[in-house]
Computed example of a mutant assay.
Amino acid sequence: MDFETVSAEAFGASLRGLGLNLLVRDVLGTCKLLETVFDMQAHRKSADFAIVTYGSQVFQLHSDGTYASNPLLGLLPETPPRGAGIEIRLYDTDPDKAVKRAEQAGATILQAPTDKPHGLREAYILDHDGYAWVPSRPLHDTADGEVQNSD
């Protein structure tokens, strides 16, 4: 599917499984951060909307104005953060590289890259809307792709 030319109707009809829409104050600014820090690709970028890809995963960014008749808009806080309580986990992103890029992009590092007991090295990066992006990698990979615990 060509995300740059697909119609809204065809794109909407193609969506399956679990979907993610993030309401953000600045769609273009969020696109820039996601592209810079996580090597994501943003498509159909405008002040109101973007389709974002992370590997084979697709999600959407919407400005507040696009949700004018949506019941969710009334629940948004007047002041940040908006994203409290949600973690957006990026299992194919090196947390050390992402943190360096995030610092340069002006994002907030909530937790530096840390080896966790559940077998992942991960970091917590807050974007300007308060969403927690969690780049992570397995601590140890075996030849068959299974994670080995270090204990």
Score class of each variant (00 low, 15 high):
residue 113 P to Q: 14
residue 113 P to H: 08
residue 113 P to S: 10
residue 114 T to P: 01
residue 114 T to F: 01
residue 114 T to A: 02
residue 115 D to T: 06
residue 115 D to S: 12
residue 115 D to R: 03
residue 115 D to Y: 01
residue 115 D to G: 01
residue 116 K to D: 13
residue 116 K to H: 12
residue 116 K to C: 08
residue 116 K to F: 08
residue 116 K to G: 03
residue 116 K to P: 00
residue 117 P to T: 02
residue 117 P to S: 06
residue 117 P to K: 01
residue 118 H to F: 15
residue 118 H to I: 02
residue 118 H to M: 02
residue 119 G to A: 07
residue 119 G to M: 03
residue 119 G to L: 04
residue 119 G to P: 04
residue 120 L to G: 00
residue 120 L to K: 14
residue 120 L to D: 13
residue 120 L to Q: 14
residue 121 R to F: 02
residue 121 R to T: 02
residue 121 R to A: 00
residue 122 E to Y: 00
residue 122 E to S: 09
residue 122 E to I: 01
residue 123 A to E: 07
residue 123 A to F: 05
residue 123 A to C: 10
residue 124 Y to W: 10
residue 124 Y to K: 07
residue 125 I to A: 04
residue 125 I to N: 05
residue 125 I to L: 08
residue 126 L to R: 06
residue 126 L to M: 11
residue 126 L to W: 03
residue 126 L to Q: 11
residue 127 D to C: 07
residue 127 D to A: 06
residue 127 D to V: 08
residue 127 D to N: 11
residue 128 H to D: 05
residue 128 H to E: 05
residue 128 H to A: 08
residue 129 D to P: 05
residue 129 D to Y: 03
residue 129 D to R: 09
residue 129 D to W: 06
residue 130 G to K: 01
residue 131 Y to P: 09
residue 131 Y to A: 13
residue 132 A to E: 13
residue 132 A to R: 14
residue 133 W to M: 05
residue 133 W to D: 04
residue 133 W to E: 02
residue 133 W to T: 05
residue 134 V to K: 01
residue 134 V to A: 03
residue 134 V to R: 02
residue 134 V to T: 07
residue 134 V to C: 09
residue 135 P to N: 03
residue 135 P to S: 07
residue 135 P to H: 03
residue 136 S to Q: 14
residue 136 S to E: 15
residue 136 S to K: 10
residue 136 S to F: 00
residue 136 S to Y: 00
residue 136 S to L: 13
residue 137 R to C: 05
residue 137 R to Y: 09
residue 137 R to T: 09
residue 137 R to H: 08
residue 138 P to R: 14
residue 138 P to F: 10
residue 139 L to N: 13
residue 139 L to H: 03
residue 139 L to V: 12
residue 139 L to I: 15
residue 139 L to S: 05
residue 139 L to F: 09
residue 140 H to F: 13
residue 140 H to N: 14
residue 140 H to L: 11
residue 140 H to A: 10
residue 140 H to R: 14
residue 141 D to Y: 10
residue 142 T to N: 14
residue 142 T to Y: 04
residue 143 A to I: 07
residue 143 A to S: 11
residue 143 A to H: 10
residue 143 A to T: 09
residue 143 A to N: 09
residue 144 D to R: 07
residue 144 D to N: 15
residue 144 D to G: 08
residue 145 G to I: 10
residue 145 G to A: 09
residue 145 G to T: 10
residue 146 E to W: 06
residue 146 E to H: 11
residue 146 E to S: 13
residue 146 E to V: 04
residue 146 E to M: 11
residue 147 V to T: 11
residue 148 Q to G: 04
residue 148 Q to P: 02
residue 148 Q to N: 09
residue 148 Q to L: 15
residue 148 Q to H: 11
residue 149 N to Q: 11
residue 149 N to W: 07
residue 149 N to F: 13
residue 150 S to I: 08
residue 150 S to A: 13
residue 150 S to W: 13
residue 150 S to K: 12
residue 151 D to L: 12
residue 151 D to A: 15
residue 151 D to C: 06
residue 151 D to V: 13
